[in-house]
């Protein structure tokens, strides 16, 4: 691994985004708008206090999944990935470069949505805000790593976009957001035990309810981080220097 190449890759991805104002506006604006909608759809602060943080964990996960799976598909299809693979670019240089760029972006995204939620929308968090930010950024990295991995199986942009519902919606249904997990059929609860988004939502629930950083929250954070690293290593295994 080379730090210089990793940082150059991060700068390059951020430069690409800088030229694409609309994508940046949508990445920050859409989750903000959805939070505002959510607040007034329920119109009951206590329900918003419960559901809002969970969505703050879900948005970066979903958005980073889409953006990276389409972004890496473009690198594969456009030949730039093959060009980089003929250069002294390590596979982890590229992936960590992506992770840093999208991690920064997730920080900005969640920061804005959290600020709007805490001030205008009157979100009441029991726990410290930084833990929410930390969990949200880890969720974003998990979504990004799964997106990188999924893009290896997509031949076209049409397929890449469909991987979002395929990878994300089952997790979103089973993670306890819609129905508490202990009320689901027991085999579904068992499935949800091994899905990373379950722990992301659980962590967000704990941040919103518990004033202190407890052992269960730390366990959730560790599980999300380990899953993100595993997905990143899986993604690295799909990057090949030689192709047929």
């Amino acid at each position: 691994m080379s730090l210089a190449i990793t940082l150059a890759t991060t700068r390059r991805i951020l430069a690409q985004l800088r030229h694409d104002h609309r994508t940046i506006a949508m990445m920050v604006g859409v989750p903000s708008l959805l939070m505002i909608l959510l607040r007034y759809v329920f119109d009951r602060p206590e329900v918003f206090d419960r559901v809002g943080p969970m969505l703050l964990g879900l948005f970066p996960f979903v958005i980073m999944f889409i953006v990276t799976s389409v972004g890496t598909l473009r690198e594969r299809a456009g030949g730039t990935l093959e060009r980089l693979m003929t250069m002294p670019m390590g596979r982890l240089d590229l992936l960590v470069g992506y992770a840093l760029a999208f991690g920064l972006l997730a920080l900005a995204q969640v920061g804005v949505v959290l600020a709007i939620s805490l001030t205008w929308l009157g979100l009441d968090l029991a726990g410290p805000g930084w833990t929410l930010l930390l969990v949200a950024v880890l969720d974003a990295l998990l979504g990004m790593a799964l997106g990188l991995f999924a893009s290896a199986f997509a031949r076209t942009e049409f397929q890449a976009v469909q991987f979002m519902p395929a990878f994300v919606l089952p997790q979103a249904l089973l993670c306890g957001l819609i129905m508490p997990r202990d009320q689901m059929a027991s085999w579904l609860e068992a499935v949800s035990d091994v899905l990373p988004l379950t722990y992301a939502v659980d962590a967000m629930q704990r941040v919103s309810r518990e004033p202190d950083v407890g052992g269960d929250l730390v366990r959730d954070i560790v599980i999300i981080a380990v899953c993100a690293v595993l997905a990143l290593l899986l993604a690295a295994a799909t990057l090949r220097r030689r192709t047929p």
């Binding site: 150059a8 890759t9 690409q16 694409d20 002294p88």
Partner: peptide, 16 residues
């Protein structure tokens, strides 16, 4: 990268 300028492209590949 078609969403970068000529210089930005060259700078990136030079860094790699």
């Amino acid at each position: 990268y078609d969403d970068l300028s000529v210089t930005e492209n060259l700078r990136y590949f030079a860094a790699v």
